[in-house]
Nucleic acid binder design. Structure first.
Length: 358
DNA sequence: AGTTATGATTATTT
DNA sequence: AAATAATCATAACT
């Protein structure tokens, strides 16, 4: 049943093909009788023209007959070639689209914000619970944080369902068009290349729609993020134990209060703000950053007004001295309990006086 | 309400 | 890149 229509294909363009040697496979026969093909073509043309005047049944039969014509496949390919050269090549070349930087930017951002990446649902609840268990202040801003997460998840869900919709629509439409073109390729010259190009065009169109989706998703995330960022400024003080640990380190390293990365890690752990496997606190900030912030603030504020911190300095000097004494006493009573710190660089050593004052 | 303390952010410096 | 200095915004205190 598919052969009937195919005939028209090869024949519609016959008028333009007066040269007899266009890709005819049957060259032997052609050489034997040069006048023959033109005659043939003329006949065929007439037959085609006559089809419209015939009844449906007759036309079908005629079509079928023509479709089976020995020259049909050759003619079809020639027509495709001609079409290719005259029409498609003109605008078909400038289409090696490089990966759009804009869409790559959007993709990267969505990935970074965890919208398009792999699902990470269960971790957040566990992390919040762990943070609550470990930290001194169980009911802090983790609520806001989970709010943020919930909203992000919502955006994420919408994004994915929309994306899926678009993808489905795209493939549906592509399929439809491809079928249509394949069907039509029986009645007019459409090369596979042309179909390919059509598909590419459709994909481009749909990807531009996708870009709009991505863009608006990005916008939504940005808005959410900015709101969250504002919320992030609602700072929570460290608990007493944490500041104690930090101060201890600071004043016992007053000569060089610059903890290395490892030391910061250690401090974060000691402060009880590090939860195993989780590297951000409830405010979404890296613990190391928090420790760094603390030391940055401490250094500058200490330097700015040493007098104000003297009391504190003495207090911690005593503390560490006592600790050191205890440790060394426990280890071996004989050896001298060395005082842990002494001023080396720009920072003066805290001067401990018995009455606790400078 | 006004003030201070403090964690985080931003701009600048080194 | 990391430290500093200035600044912001809020917690905590008076």
């Amino acid at each position: 049943m598919d052969d009937q229509t195919r005939m028209l294909t090869g024949l519609t363009g016959l008028g333009g093909l007066s040269q007899p040697d266009v890709g005819d496979p049957d060259s032997v026969r052609k050489q034997q009788s040069l006048g023959q093909p033109q005659q043939d073509i003329g006949d065929i043309l007439q037959q085609i023209m006559a089809i419209t005047d015939e009844s449906l049944d007759e036309a079908q039969a005629r079509k079928h007959a023509l479709n089976c014509h020995r020259m049909k496949p050759a003619l079809f390919s020639v027509l495709c070639e001609i079409k290719e050269k005259t029409v498609l090549s003109i605008r078909g070349v400038q289409e090696e689209d490089p990966p759009d930087p804009q869409i790559m930017r959007l993709d990267n951002m969505l990935l970074a914000e965890g919208v398009s990446g792999p699902e990470k649902g269960g971790g957040s609840a566990a992390a919040a619970a762990a943070a609550a268990a470990a930290g001194g202040s169980p009911t802090d801003s983790s609520i806001e944080h989970s709010d943020y997460r919930a909203k992000l998840a919502q955006i994420r869900q919408i994004y994915h369902s929309e994306l899926e919709k678009y993808e489905q629509a795209c493939s549906e439409f592509t399929n439809h068009v491809m079928n249509l073109l394949r069907e039509q390729s029986r009645t007019r010259p459409i090369s596979p290349k042309e179909i390919e190009r059509m598909v590419a065009i459709i994909h481009r169109k749909f990807s531009s729609i996708q870009m709009q989706l991505k863009q608006s998703t990005c916008e939504a995330v940005m808005i959410l993020r900015s709101r969250f960022l504002d919320a992030r400024r609602k700072r929570r003080n460290f608990n007493k134990q944490a500041t104690e640990v930090l101060n201890e380190y600071f004043y016992s390293h007053l000569s060089n209060p610059y903890p290395s990365e490892e030391a910061k890690e250690e401090l974060a752990k000691k402060c009880g703000i590090t939860v195993p496997g989780v590297h951000t606190n409830t405010l979404g900030i890296t613990h190391l950053t928090s420790v760094s912030n603390w030391f940055g603030n401490k250094r500058i504020r200490y330097k700015k007004n040493i007098g104000k911190f003297q009391e504190e300095a003495n207090l911690y000097a005593v503390k560490t001295a006592v600790d050191a004494a205890n440790v060394s006493a426990q280890a071996s009573q004989a050896n001298s309990p060395a005082t842990p710190n002494s001023g080396i660089s720009g920072y003066p050593a805290p001067c401990y006086t018995p009455d606790g004052r400078l």
